[in-house]
Nucleic acid binder design. Sequence first.
DNA 1: ACAAAAGTGTTCGATATACACCCATGT
DNA 2: ACATGGGTGTATATCGAACACTTTTGT
Lengths: 218, 218
Amino acid sequence: MRVAVDIVIFTIQSGSLRVLLVRRKIAPFEGKFALPGGFVHEDEGLEDAALRELEEETGVGDVYLEQLYSFGTPSRDPRGRVISVSYFALISPDRTLQAGSDAAEAQWQEMQKLPPLAFDHGAILEYALERLRNKLEYTTVGFQLLPEKFTLPDLQGVYEAILDKKLDKRNFRRKIAQLKILKPLKEFQQTGRRPAQLFRFVAGKFEKLKDKGILFPF
Amino acid sequence: MRVAVDIVIFTIQSGSLRVLLVRRKIAPFEGKFALPGGFVHEDEGLEDAALRELEEETGVGDVYLEQLYSFGTPSRDPRGRVISVSYFALISPDRTLQAGSDAAEAQWQEMQKLPPLAFDHGAILEYALERLRNKLEYTTVGFQLLPEKFTLPDLQGVYEAILDKKLDKRNFRRKIAQLKILKPLKEFQQTGRRPAQLFRFVAGKFEKLKDKGILFPF
DNA sequence: ACAAAAGTGTTCGATATACACCCATGT
DNA sequence: ACATGGGTGTATATCGAACACTTTTGT
């Protein structure tokens, strides 16, 4: 019985939610897209294995990583019995440039236009998205998808891309404001028309979030 | 690499939350209490394995069962590499009588007075309790801990036992009422002083619960 | 001047919380 | 009659949802 980790790595690019997929070079499912992942080494923790695979695929460490679910239907891998412990990871777009360092065929695909996936990876991805949407509401995971400095429109864009719906600007900003987790900077982003103020995430005061369950001290 | 399932089985007895523990008869941790569980068979799904173990320990099938988390620190089992996929189960007190059918040493222990547990089972149990408390708020799992017919004080007792705090009777009853998931019966429980009305859980209308995430279609 | 996105408050309904008395039964 | 737990309603604070205009910049 072998144990593998499969990782759903989300990022935001061009205002849309994307996931890292690799094209399989060998059977089964040769040529199909799959989640990045691999077998857990004999003396390696599950999360360590996920971090290793993640770094191999994206070249990036130190990202938000959380265990998702374990899939173990006996028939899920035609080669034999493989238990997949799935993880989901979030990475900010300014750190995704290195992607493809290992698996030459790794691509950031839009969640809107997904190809059919190998194994049961479609179900894993679906569940990851549901979890991400839920956590967005009661935790601060959303900030993991932004660079260190960001604007409020950027932040709202992250929420809108994940939830796949428009949000009211004023309500959104009030909600963020009362969390008191943003430090306003004296810098402004000069990109579009009117410059937007930059902020930094400071995990200082998140009382209400903490007792609602920032979750899991592992 | 071996894969095991460990199951946190909760019930309510004498108004307090209890968990099923078995005393280990062999090393390692001989004589210590542990969560019921065992190795996954070669051609058996993870949930099937959990159900099998659960039925072996309690003699009961058809219970609420949900996957919790997978623990895989290499050193967690001194005998060698074992990945534990943990589950949590809820069982109503009128069905727990058969307990101990297999493991002669299986006991329902109060969550208040827990002995130290073998392996990392203490951490598993802690996480299971946290999850149960969270789910209590946005799902109807609480009803799984009651017999088919129950009174409102019974139901409130379940919530109080799990959350380990007193709740306001009137607020509690209003909250339950507006879910419209209880069918009042024409029977009354004759036990204490004044008879209490019996209800039956009917999953009919739980709109708000459903889109909040009754979760996981597997 | 105009186009485009940034920024800013108020109202209203729903939901959570705090709180005290009467009722039905068994002894 | 009294002790025990069952049963019921109101007032207040808090939170989420709807909704429109002014400001700053680049062209």
